[in-house]
Write a protein that binds this DNA or RNA. Sequence first.
DNA 1: AAGACGGGGTG
DNA 2: CACCCAGTCTT
Length: 350
Amino acid sequence: MKISQKEEFNKALLTWYHQEKRDLPWRRTSDPYYIWVSEVMLQQTRVDTVIPYYEKFIASFPTMESLAEAEEEHVLKHWEGLGYYSRVRNLQAGVKEVVGNYESKIPRTRAEILNLRGIGPYTAGAVLSIAYGVPEHAVDGNVMRVFSRLFMIEEDIALPKTKKVFEQRVMDVIDETDPSSFNQAIMELGATICTPNPRCLLCPVRDFCTAFEEGKQEELPVKTKKLKKKVMTIHSFAISEPGGKWLLRKRPAQGLLGDFWEFPQIECNPSMDSADALKSATGLVIEQGEAFAQFKHIFSHVTWHVEGYHAVLKDSSPIPEGYRFFSDEELELVPQSKPMSKLLMHLKNN
DNA sequence: AAGACGGGGTG
DNA sequence: CACCCAGTCTT
């Protein structure tokens, strides 16, 4: 989208929002304290989960004074099951600051409100814009997803510094006449339409979306995956031909063990018979499989539990593209993974 | 910049 | 089961 289209964009966005927005409890109030409570509850938590908690919390602590004076244990009880319990401890601490230092008036500037416990860049912007109508950015994961597509921003949203790019872009586009609706509309869009798997045909602003124009909406946002430890169970099939040759396949050039040769293998699905799984994954049809080896192999970020099966290929089985037979001599000449050579060693020794 | 913090929904 | 999600604080 071009910045010059700002006015048409905001008209389309806000019209859609006013028509389609969900009726949520915190959208029926303009009390800054209630907005604050809702925004804290909504951090990392779904709307449907929050609603009953919000109702009960507001009923029990209807004013900032009542929350400030309450026992922490009592407050915590109202958060039970919501998770991230430091949120509510920080909320109460922040409310105490407002009651004690700001005459129970939540500050109206980003710099001041950011000093409050539990209020970070997102919540600051959300409260300022929604409760006070101040044109401030409120950038969360949804906003980054939506804007990355609208403007084809391809920077990695997993990097903290990238958020500044989005905050600046929001400030360029935000509707100064109704910042509250603008911020909520972007988040509503991200929650209902511009989801990870976007439903572009329903989108009120797809005509402004650069990613949609170029068919790249599925590729955005760019987010490097955290390398979490992964554990997989792999079934490898040592399939031999009557002549004594082994059936191997080459791994993809890219990624782990690129271009290495290995036994046909599948990620083990416990609910499925191994031979059936092999057939559906590779097309190979085997007569039978007999377990002959089992070991663990650890790569940098993934642990394989390898189970080897000695199997006989059915006469009628197809040999898929990328598979070929190797004699023992030929095998010496091609690269193979550690799990592969371990299995081979096992076979030779037995 | 990376890790901790909870729980629930989803493919 | 891995991954995602309306973030903030600590290290």
